[in-house]
Design a binder for these strands. Structure first.
Ligand code: MN
Ligand code: MN
Ligand code: ZN
Ligand code: ZN
Lengths: 150, 150
DNA sequence: AAGAGTATGATAATCATTATCAATACGATT
DNA sequence: AATCGTATTGATAATGATTATCATACTCTT
């Protein structure tokens, strides 16, 4: 069983349910995405997909990453001032991000106390929860040293 | 003492320190901003400023709202899928946002437990804190009712 | 193999924001 | 109050990410 077989099936099911088709370009984008274990922009994904198939178009990458997100295989995370970024969603639990403003290093974390407190906020105001985004910005130990006193 | 006198002085000091000048357009944008007690886009601010002075240019609004942010009078908050939004910062403490995906209603809240837990994360990973962004999305009581079962 | 309908890639269009630049306004100094 | 060196302005073009268009190509079921 090849890499990404499970994800491929998920995408196929998702497409079939909606009368859409599994195509070669979509396979290519999925494969490129699964190989990139990072928070990736559409442009980076486009470059990776082109390495697998130079004939692939940019528009297709934008369209497909959205499909992957709808299908539950990808999820938006860590927008990069201007560009969206996506990360794996399938078998990758929700988490928050601590990002270094100096070098871009990203720590992924999940704090039960924070998650619980957020749920309490929803309850307090009678809102039905959908999703949340928590991003902590700062300077990693290395970059903090470089900017002493700033 | 007119409305916004304090803020005006803050802006003047900020500009003087950097060899920049207090100008009529900047006054106009500040006045328009202070009157808008909401999370506002540059475009909305532009419209409001034009009502005060039809000759004002859009570029000036973009430039000035950034100045206000640097000067500590404004702060980015609640980006509106595509466009930045700004809110008052002077004498308006940090807070997080709970936003309704149905009608756009925004609840501002501050949870000491969450803030504390966030600080702990910074400590745990040795990061120097800069700022953080927490946004809870969901459906307000009214909109939740309209979408029962969705 | 054929047909109906979806997907593709190239390209143009959007939208928010920024850069450019000649003309103008500030404000310190005289 | 007039002068002068700079900073600022508004109009406009440019940018960058994303989306829309559309003629052609592909999928998948029959
Ligand atoms: Mn992540
Ligand atoms: Mn707010
Ligand atoms: Zn760093
Ligand atoms: Zn609502």
């Amino acid at each position: 069983m090849g890499i990404g077989a499970e994800e491929r099936l998920i995408l196929e099911d998702y497409l079939r349910e909606r009368g859409q088709k599994m195509t070669r370009p979509r396979e290519t984008v999925l494969e490129a995405f699964l190989k990139l274990e990072r928070h990736v922009t559409a442009e980076e994904l486009f470059a990776a997909a082109q390495r697998l198939d130079p004939s692939i178009g940019q528009a297709t990458v934008f369209r497909t990453i959205k499909l992957l997100a709808d299908a539950g295989l990808a999820r938006e995370a860590c927008p990069d001032e201007g560009a969206r970024r996506y990360e794996h969603s399938y078998k990758h639990e929700h988490h928050d991000h601590l990002v270094c403003l100096g070098c871009g290093a990203i720590v992924e974390f999940k704090d039960p106390a924070i998650e619980r407190a957020q749920d309490a906020i929803y309850v307090k105001y009678g809102y039905r929860p959908s999703n949340h985004r928590l991003e902590l910005e700062g300077y990693c130990p290395v970059c903090a040293k470089k900017k002493v006193g700033v």
